[in-house]
Amino acid sequence: MIADLLTLGIAVLILLGSPGPAPMALAGIGAAYGPRRGLPFLIGLIVAAGIVMLLSSLGVAALLSASASVRVFLQIIAAGYILFLALRVYRGAGGPEGAAASKVPGFFDGFILNLINPKAYAAFAAIFASFGIRHSDPAVSAMMTAGVTFLLLCLIDAIWLAAGGFFKRLTNDPSWGKSIRAAFAVMMAAAGLYSLTRL
């Protein structure tokens, strides 16, 4: 059991916690608006992740793998949405003009981002297929794997948001703010565009 938990934890960290569109969005929003104002976005991501986890366990991930055109369409939509969020982070609340120009990405933005991201479906499918906690009852195995994965995901995503928040003080400084927001926006855009290369 301990070995299974350790293996699952490492897999979740690599598949769901490595820099990608959602983690970069969390860090960028934390830097532009602060962790407290980024909480609705975080909650949206997490709620959608729970739905994606359920759908993946029901076979939607296999359907996406089998249908290249649906997968490509969703990946292009997800990458476009990341670019849209990156622009909002860049124009974020670093000063009076930024606060007026851009509304904080909220629950709906986070929810949509994870719900249309084929990478999330693939990651959950891989976790359940290869890194599940072994138990004599498959239903118990699936529930334990889902519970541990969900708790780790919540922790990892909260850390990404808090890590971005570390830069919040600097983004309020006119001499640093625009550059830091631009850096996070570029990292978000790069993560979104990189996902297109993996179609």
Rank of each mutant, 00 (worst) to 15 (best):
G9K: 07
L16A: 03
V70R: 10
Y194S: 14
F111R: 05
K168D: 10
V52K: 01
S136V: 13
A189H: 00
D137C: 03
F108A: 15
T145E: 05
I29N: 09
V148Y: 01
A22M: 08
Y90C: 08
S179G: 13
I112F: 06
G17R: 07
G80H: 05
G9Y: 01
A142R: 13
I159L: 13
P23A: 02
A142P: 02
R181K: 15
P138H: 07
P19T: 10
L54D: 02
H135C: 06
L6M: 12
G147N: 04
A139F: 11
A48S: 15
P23Y: 01
F184A: 00
P23S: 14
A68T: 14
A139I: 10
A62E: 15
L6G: 08
F107I: 08
I2S: 12
G147R: 04
G59S: 08
G9S: 12
A129T: 14
R71Y: 09
L26M: 13
G98Q: 01
A120T: 05
S195Q: 13
A183R: 02
T149C: 01
K103M: 11
G44P: 06
F128Y: 11
I133P: 01
F41C: 04
S57R: 09
L83V: 15
D4K: 01
K119S: 09
I180Y: 01
S18I: 11
T149R: 00
D157T: 10
V186L: 10
A191L: 04
R181S: 02
L15S: 02
F131M: 07
F73P: 00
F167W: 12
G94Y: 04
I43C: 12
R134L: 13
P138G: 05
Y194Q: 13
V72N: 14
I180S: 00
I180L: 11
L58S: 10
F107E: 10
I159E: 03
R71M: 10
V104R: 03
G132Q: 09
A66E: 10
G132A: 13
S130T: 11
I127H: 04
S179W: 15
S65E: 15
W160Q: 06
A49T: 10
S175K: 15
A129M: 14
G192R: 00
A100M: 14
L85G: 03
V186E: 00
A101Q: 06
P35D: 06
V47F: 09
I29D: 01
A61M: 00
A190G: 06
I159K: 02
N172I: 10
P118C: 05
A190T: 13
Y33Q: 07
V60Q: 00
A11L: 04
F128L: 14
L15K: 02
A191Q: 00
T171N: 03
